[in-house]
Design a protein around this nucleic acid. Structure first.
Lengths: 221, 221
DNA sequence: ATCGAAAAGTGGTCAGACCACTACTGTTTA
DNA sequence: TAAACAGTAGTGGTCTGACCACTTTTCGAT
């Protein structure tokens, strides 16, 4: 049974065994894994060792445990890759600048992808956003960017962006004001028209404005 | 002591407590953490619960344990995290696509940033790469992209890219062959000259080629 | 002062015992 | 017959105490 030589870290071997078992038995997303006691019996180790391996995988979001029910292979949507990254990446010096740059990378990439894809350009959500801005005079800032990232249909990028947004000092949680609405309309319309360069320019202007505003605020504080 | 309400997942609370403790006591990379028995005493939980939390952090590469010595805050150069996650994540149909798209986003962003920054364009590393390709006829694929990301001076993007690279099926771990060297030279020279569009085109061609080659390989297998 | 053996400290693992919760099963009841 | 109920088996969650293997420290003999 023991195909892999036991290392000094038994629980790591268990993780490997579990991966093999999942593949061998065709366990897929949502399926139930054998119970801890069964696994301990089958792999000939103590239950606590099994638990250490399972808890590791749970922290990564690879499995999901429900008391009284069992342990289940988790859906990718629940994978904690990004969250995990954040815990040990974010609190480094210089990270504020990096976080902003990286957030912008993802936002611009979304804008460009939409501009270059007729189908995504014609999504009704853009017209809706324009109407909301015109009718109500304001909209939640982050709603706009989020819709753009969502439109790219890239869950991973969305997750990364969401996390970066939280760590950013950018005031996305606020409503837009008169000054920026024009730029946003320009951004949206350029995007709808597929004018990449102009859309990016509008975006840059908008970011510049709301970050300038943020700096004014922080000066007061 | 218990500032956070106990959830149904005690070991997750312990992970949080540990993070707080690490920050509060100024424990930095390489420092020793309190022993498992001390932690159990201090947090008023069983040692097995402490261990489940520690094992989770160990699987992430956040801590390092040495039998007989203790538990230490690790430098996260250990990305065993990736090996674990990748096998689980890659089973999901769409995630592979997302990973690739996101990796490309970061790579193109790096190319564009270098193109638009005279200082970064004139870094000696690009000439070195061109010389290596010309003289030795080959170079490690990932070296090129890594140097580009490094040049952007964005550690966060570099870390994300590094992880994505390992998740990707792109054969970056191999040496370049005759076919692609021309495209790489074109990419580098366009970049040095600041020709954004042309550089991106060269990049797209290169990626297309090495991914095509990869598909051929898998067909053989 | 040096060397070496004993002791203390630490992570690694196991077994067994409860607890809290869920799901199943069989009986009772309307 | 069908619904409601209670009991039971199964599951994850946690704790305790006991070893083991290993490293560091301590301290006595030389």
């Amino acid at each position: 049974m023991q195909t892999t030589k036991p290392s000094s870290k038994m629980f790591l071997d268990i993780v490997e065994e579990l991966k093999l078992m999942i593949n061998a038995e065709g366990i897929t997303v949502g399926d139930k894994l054998p119970s801890e006691r069964v696994l301990a019996e089958r792999l000939q180790v103590g239950r606590s060792t099994i638990r250490e391996a399972l808890r590791s995988l749970e922290l990564l979001g690879l499995i999901e445990t429900r008391r009284g029910e069992g342990t289940f292979l988790a859906d990718f949507k629940k994978h904690q890759l990004v969250e995990v990254l954040s815990t040990f990446i974010m609190q480094q010096p210089n990270s504020a600048v990096d976080v902003k740059k990286t957030r912008v990378i993802h936002e611009k990439a979304a804008i460009e992808e939409i501009c270059n894809d007729p189908v995504k350009r014609e999504l009704p959500v853009w017209q809706s956003l324009i109407m909301i801005i015109n009718d109500e005079g304001t909209v939640l800032r982050e709603d706009i960017m989020r819709e753009m990232i969502i439109a790219t249909d890239n869950r991973l990028s969305l997750k990364i962006w969401f996390l970066l947004k939280q760590y950013s000092r950018v005031p996305y949680g606020e409503m837009t004001n008169e000054n920026e609405n024009g730029m946003l309309i320009a951004l949206l319309e350029n995007m709808i028209s597929g004018h990449v360069v102009e859309a990016i320019v509008s975006y840059d202007r908008w970011i510049e404005v709301i970050e300038g505003e943020m700096n004014d605020d922080s000066r007061v504080v």
